[in-house]
Design a protein around this nucleic acid. Structure first.
Lengths: 188, 188
DNA sequence: CAGTGAAGCGGATAGCCTGTTCGTTTCACT
DNA sequence: AGTGAAACGAACAGGCTATCCGCTTCACTG
């Protein structure tokens, strides 16, 4: 159903171990750190050389994508497990999306910093999320609960934009609430 | 009325000339360039040394703020020249704000990238815009046209967040429209 | 179980960047 | 003209991303 990630290609055992070490180290570094983590710093903390780091992840972006992939799985899964009126299903999903996003902001914000939609950049995570939300929006629009002058891309970009605001959830929640209210069809 | 910028301190004539050259060069570089302009590059193009650049602007942020100051003036002025129902005055102002912002996005986006409200960072431009919008929001809320569970800071952060989405105005406008609709009081 | 080729490794390195230091030049004023 | 301070540019320190290259280690084969 949801676009699944490709299985890991077979590698030598030590290479696989190194990859895991790097991922674990990076996750820890981003989690408790300031978010000012450089590639060199990750290699240093993981006890591997720069080459090993860059062989596993061609660039910083790819590493961040890999770190975020689990959360994306969770978001995609959540899209299928929502019931109630289609309009509320959508807004609930978007609220959950924001919560996931904010909980990993050091990674996710940087990851989507330069996600220019016009670029043919291969951002698999974005595609997966879009695929998961597509039917939710379609249902809500067909039920005339959500305005139909916005695409899913636009709605998601709006929520992402709000999620990137560097503030506490208490500050963000009213903003999201207002924005989501704006998605509903205007009562004539 | 609006918080005015402090007058330029008196300097030697050559220093003043250099400052203007730097500002003009930077403005041109950001305008036609990719937005990937480094401090060193600006110094190179302006034909001045690094020290001169950094003596005039202690850091990259300060240079960007100076570049943006004129637009901020225009936005603040616009806030005083709006009539009509207070709710519409506010939304019109916010729309204009987004337009200004987008027209200078390479500068403005980076400028507000790390504008963490919790930081006691001296961001004079932000303060000036907040000052200009304050009465607009107060009037709209007192007229019960705009919901009162959001502060001006939150509303502006929302609009700024939308403005930072790297897309054409045609893509952004419906998003802003929805978000602004969400600011109105919900008809019971 | 020893031999071997390739996959994988880490450190050194190139080329950016921001921001600072320092010896020299140039202005403004007497 | 003379002089002191303000302003100058170039060189430098330290950090970053990403690549290169000679050495090591794994996994497979006879």
């Amino acid at each position: 159903m949801s676009s699944t990630r490709p299985p890991a290609p077979s590698r030598r055992a030590d290479a696989k171990r190194n990859r895991e070490t790097i991922l674990a180290t990076a996750r820890a570094a981003f989690a408790d750190g300031e978010g000012e983590i450089s590639m060199a710093e990750i290699a240093r903390r993981a006890g591997v050389g720069m080459a090993t780091l860059y062989r596993n992840f061609p660039g910083r972006r790819e590493l961040l994508e890999a770190l975020y992939a689990d959360e994306v799985d969770a978001i995609c899964d959540a899209a299928g497990r929502l019931d109630g009126p289609p309009g509320e299903a959508l807004t609930t999903w978007l609220q959950r999306f924001l919560a996931y996003f904010v909980s990993k902001r050091p990674i996710s914000a940087e990851l989507l910093q330069h996600a220019d939609p016009s670029d043919p950049v291969f951002d698999s995570n974005r595609d997966r999320v879009l695929g998961a939300g597509r039917s939710l929006l379609a249902a809500a629009q067909q039920a005339h609960e959500i305005r139909d002058d916005l695409t899913l891309e636009q709605i998601l970009d709006m929520v992402i934009a709000i999620a990137k605001i560097p503030a506490e959830p208490d500050y963000l929640d009213p903003i999201l609430q207002a924005a989501l209210d704006g998605l509903r069809v205007r009562p004539a």
